[in-house]
């Protein structure tokens, strides 16, 4: 059914204009792709008095690399990322995750920044951005600041953005040579929200980064697992010990999508397979990016 809630619609052309509008209209909702915002409005899950559409802000749709940093603008959609040679070269695991987001008609609209602003525990961009050690660039009444993704997610649907602030982009320091993998547990091959998401980066010298999604209130890195893995090959760690570390790291829930038991079981399976795929990709082998390991 139709959106019953009344709100004002504003469309700034510049960041300062946008910040002024956000300052003038407390509680305003920022609109980019709208694939979350519009259904939330329909469900009365949000009832803002003002919606600020940022799609006219110049430069917000860019993906570029400068000074060893990849920058993703707030209007960059998952389709843009999938089509970007720069992204494929530098952040292939984020591109792999992008392929798993909904379907073409949604990816053409849904933005990467919007995905982490919505901050649902299952957000597909979360785990890859964590292993790529991205930062969220923010402008606000107090000026600009950069929030490491590690500190971004605060709880289900809650992130570190303060009142009046606007995300101006995501920055990722170029990771150099690496093998990456994003594995997503879904109920079938068609589009689904992740029941478990695992992102792994294998860096030269048997250095690994591991992040999980959908098995805790927020996507998170797993340092204990990374430490255990460090220095060895992907299959060197004792499987039982690794499973135990997974169990300690995650705090999955039972819901209509999956049970706690299955999420736990699959977190272990997916970590093993993602590690193997990431390590093989680092060596130039492994399954091509985009081919799911489960």
């Amino acid at each position: 059914m139709t959106i019953a809630h009344d709100f004002a619609y504003l469309r700034p052309a510049t960041v300062p204009d946008a910040l002024a509008m956000l300052a003038d209209h407390r509680g305003a909702m920022v609109l980019a792709g709208g694939t979350d915002v519009v259904p939330w409005l329909r469900d009365d899950a949000i009832t803002p008095e003002t919606v600020v559409d940022i799609k006219d802000i110049a430069g917000f749709d860019a993906i570029d690399v400068a000074d060893g940093v990849l920058r993703i603008g707030p209007l960059v959609t998952f389709s843009d990322l999938i089509a970007s040679p720069v992204a494929a070269e530098h952040v292939p695991a984020l591109v792999e995750a992008s392929h798993t987001v909904a379907s073409v008609g949604v990816r053409n609209r849904a933005t990467v920044v919007g995905n982490i602003c919505s901050a649902v525990p299952s957000c597909d961009a979360g785990p890859p951005l964590l292993v790529y050690e991205a930062a969220v660039e923010v402008a606000g009444p107090g000026g600009e600041r950069s929030i490491p993704v590690l500190e971004w997610f605060l709880g289900p649907r809650t992130q570190a953005l303060a009142e009046g602030e606007l995300v101006t982009g995501i920055t990722i320091p170029l990771p150099g040579a690496h093998g990456g993998c994003y594995a997503k547990l879904s109920r079938y091959r068609g589009e689904d929200l992740a029941q478990v998401g695992v992102a792994v980066l294998a860096l030269p010298g048997n250095d690994y980064r591991v992040a999980f999604g959908a098995v805790g209130p927020v996507p998170f890195r797993a340092p204990a697992i990374e430490e255990r893995l460090a220095g060895g090959g992907p299959g060197d760690a004792d499987p039982a010990a690794l499973d135990a570390l997974v169990d300690e790291a995650i705090s999955p829930i039972d819901d209509v999508r999956a049970s706690k038991e299955y999420r736990t079981h699959m977190s272990r399976v997916m970590l093993r397979r993602s590690l193997a795929a990431a390590a093989a990709r680092l060596d130039g082998g492994g399954p091509p990016y985009g081919e799911q390991v489960i």
């Binding site: 609109l31 694939t35 053409n108």
Partner: peptide, 16 residues
């Protein structure tokens, strides 16, 4: 098709 790209018309506000 929205500028040639497929979108869900139910997820786009007409004002956009």
């Amino acid at each position: 098709l929205y500028d040639g790209k497929s979108v869900r018309a139910c997820l786009v506000l007409a004002v956009e």
